[in-house]
Computed example of a mutant assay.
Amino acid sequence: MGRPLALVDGAKPRRGPSLEFMVTPLEDLPPSLADVLQAEDHDKHLFRSPLRVYQLLLDLTEFVRRHSGGIHAVCYPNVRAQRGLGWAHGTSRNNLVAWAIGHGFRPVKREGNGQVPGGDSQDEASGEVNEQAVAGADEGLSVNVHRLRRTVLERGGKPVAHTRETFHNYLRTSQPAVERGRVVMREALEEEVAKARAVQEIPVLTDEFLARAAEDPERAAADVGLDAETFARLISGEQDAVLVGCTDPENSPVTGPGKPCGASFLDDCLRCANARALPRQLPVQIETHRRLKHLQRDLDPRLWSHRHSESFARLSDLLGQYTAAERADARERVTVTERRLVDDLINGRLDLR
């Protein structure tokens, strides 16, 4: 048998038709926790759960419902009614403020326009408290409706009959929520950086290495983890893939083993474990990097970021493995044919359709 549960139906018309009605479940504590709180004086633990508080509310307002014929949980006699004693129901911010002042809690300081500092009378998230104004312990405690609502949202982590915008307005003034958001963002960014670093960087076969490979091909192949035949095809240019050389075109992580690689030369090859960079490809790499940088100026920032930011970053990292002199020399050696090749690469004419 489950723990006791009450479904409370509420209405707030100003929230609009889609959010006006809301059913809130109020549960008692689970038996495992209730046993811990058991004592001889059961009344001492009357407020130990939302359901117990709700039951107390029903007990306190039963008299009013019986005499007024009402059905509301929050109801009370209205001594200021025009025809003498009347009956009213519902609650508002003013009820809580009046109760707080009557029980020794100081009111929240307001600015000259009658608004709580930072508040907005038209916004449900109004009532933002100037934390510095209420920080002094010697001035006594204050009760603030905005802070109470914000606390509920902080603990629940999701809107309660609010729009997303209102929910974010509440948490925007919450220092703990802001700090948690920063932690989440930092962890997400660190995770993405770790993923990027985990991807194998493209090894660069330098001129010095190729000179040694000409003298001892088998040893050079072993140094880069390749067999002699594959290494020979790689350095000959037989397996060039525009920006890099490919060590195994029929074992692609994009299309799977046993199939010709259908990866994008611009996007996929730069993050492929089969890629190796050779000095003869540096002019094309520099020209591609230059074209992507110009596109960054001409395209919408979001579109450029979506299409080209990763490739641009990987090319930047790859070019950083060469010296400034090597890059300058390669820039001067870019041919008309290579510029046309880069133009086809950027415009997607080299990709499989």
Rank of each mutant, 00 (worst) to 15 (best):
F167Y: 15
N78A: 06
E208Q: 09
L243R: 03
V284P: 06
V254Y: 13
R314D: 12
P4F: 02
Q200S: 08
S264N: 14
D41N: 14
G237W: 10
T255G: 06
W304V: 03
D207H: 12
G69C: 04
L315T: 00
H289C: 01
A324C: 01
D248S: 15
P117C: 05
F63Q: 13
L56A: 14
E27C: 10
G245E: 02
P107K: 09
S142N: 02
P31A: 14
A330H: 09
A214S: 07
L96E: 02
K44E: 07
P117M: 11
E326G: 07
G127M: 05
F167P: 08
L153K: 11
R314H: 06
L210H: 00
D227H: 11
V342L: 11
V74Y: 06
E111C: 10
A313M: 04
A135M: 08
S18D: 13
S305N: 12
E208T: 13
P30Q: 10
V64M: 11
A133T: 08
L234A: 03
D43Y: 03
G70I: 00
V224Y: 07
T255S: 15
Q200P: 06
H168S: 06
G225W: 04
D216R: 14
A6W: 03
D207K: 12
L85D: 13
V8Y: 04
T61W: 01
N347R: 13
R3W: 08
R340H: 09
V336M: 10
A81T: 01
A34L: 10
L234T: 07
G114W: 11
D298E: 15
P257T: 05
Q239S: 15
R65I: 03
V79R: 15
A133E: 15
N144M: 02
A98T: 14
V116T: 13
G102T: 08
G112M: 02
Q122G: 05
F105A: 00
A11T: 02
L295G: 09
E128P: 00
G118T: 05
E20A: 15
L299H: 04
L341K: 09
Y322H: 14
A220G: 04
I101C: 08
V284M: 13
F312G: 00
G258S: 10
D28E: 14
L29C: 03
G348S: 09
L278P: 00
T323D: 12
L278W: 01
K158V: 05
E332I: 00
S126K: 14
Q281E: 05
A133F: 03
L295A: 07
E131I: 10
C246G: 04
F209D: 04
A98G: 02
R65M: 11
H42I: 06
V178E: 14
A161I: 01
R80S: 12
V160G: 00
T206F: 11
L299Y: 14
V129Y: 00
K158S: 10
Q132C: 00
G320I: 04
N94H: 09
Q175W: 13
S121Y: 09
R280M: 02
